Structures are given as C-alpha cells and as structure tokens.
Computed example of a mutant assay.
Amino acid sequence: MRHLILFLSLSLIASCGWHLRGVSELPEGFRIIHVSGGPQTIRDQLIQRLRFNDVVVPESALDAPAQIEINEYVVERRTLSVNSVGQVAEYEFNGLLDVTVTRQDDVQSFVVEARRTLQNDVNNVVATQQEEAQLKDALNSDLLSRLMRRLERIE
C-alpha cells in the first residue's frame, strides 16, 4: 500500500509540470546574454539567476548574441493607512523594472512590476527597519522572477 501511495504521489508531481523553483526554460537564443545598466545589486542578482539557468553571461556585449539592458529600476514607498494618532500604520512598496532585450535585429522593451505591503510598528522601529529591508529583497526577487518568466515567452 505504501508503494502504491508513493508511486501515485510521484506520478502526480511528474504529470502536473512541477519543477524546481527558479528554473526557467529560456528560448535557445538566450544561451549567451550580456547584462548591462541598472543598479549593481539588481544586475548581479539577474546574472546569478541567468547562470543558475545555464546561461553564459560574458563581460563584453560583443561576445553575446543577446543583450538585456536595465533601463530603469524604481522602488516607491507610499502610505496606505494611518492610525488614530496620525502615525503611518501601513506602507506599500511598488517596484518597477524597465528592460530592453536585444537579440540580433529584434529589440523588445517591457516593464515588470511588483507590489508588497508593510505593517509599520511604531513601537519597534528596529524590527520594522529590518522587515523593510527583507521586504525590499523579496520585492527584488519578485521583479526578477517576473522578468525571467517574461524572457521565457519571447519568441
């Protein structure tokens, strides 16, 4: 009975298209990509994700048939709500990543966006600052995941 349950579980997982988190099926033309522009941290995280997906990322644009240029990276913070004494109770962080992908004679530009919210604890400022830093890291991860999914769909 255990073997049957194990076999059925593995069959279900295999048939539903499950795969490791972060693995992207990039088109063949994206096996070698040069990455430029944007802040160093975002560029490094993108390069790391590309390399994780077996993409070669050369230092020079001349060595790559495809190029990704980060035109704009913005994270805006806005107040969502205030408490009864006028202190900010909740923030919303909106991230935007504007990218141009060039491959041979094909140039495509697109924007990916992500959004996160943060509860502001006015009594524990240090914890709120740490949580904000973690939230920004998660927002960056969301932006890059959306970018990778968008790259998968490029023909």
Rank of each mutant, 00 (worst) to 15 (best):
G86I: 06
S60A: 09
R149W: 09
Q134C: 06
D121P: 04
S36W: 03
A89T: 04
P27L: 06
L50C: 02
R21N: 14
A66V: 02
E92Y: 02
G95N: 01
R103L: 14
L96K: 13
H3W: 11
A127C: 05
M1W: 07
R31E: 14
Q67L: 10
D142A: 12
Q45E: 13
L8F: 12
G37A: 04
L8I: 14
V107E: 09
G29L: 04
V23M: 12
V55C: 06
P58D: 01
S145G: 12
S84D: 15
T128D: 02
I42W: 01
G37D: 03
H3A: 15
S15L: 11
G29R: 09
L147N: 00
S11R: 03
A138G: 11
N120D: 15
E72T: 08
D106H: 15
V111F: 02
E69K: 15
L147R: 01
G17V: 07
R51L: 10
E25L: 10
L62K: 14
S11L: 12
D98A: 11
E25P: 00
Q87M: 10
L144Y: 00
F52L: 11
D105F: 07
R103E: 08
H34P: 01
V82A: 06
V82W: 04
E69H: 14
R153L: 15
I42G: 03
V57K: 01
S145E: 15
V107W: 02
D121Q: 07
I5E: 07
P65Y: 03
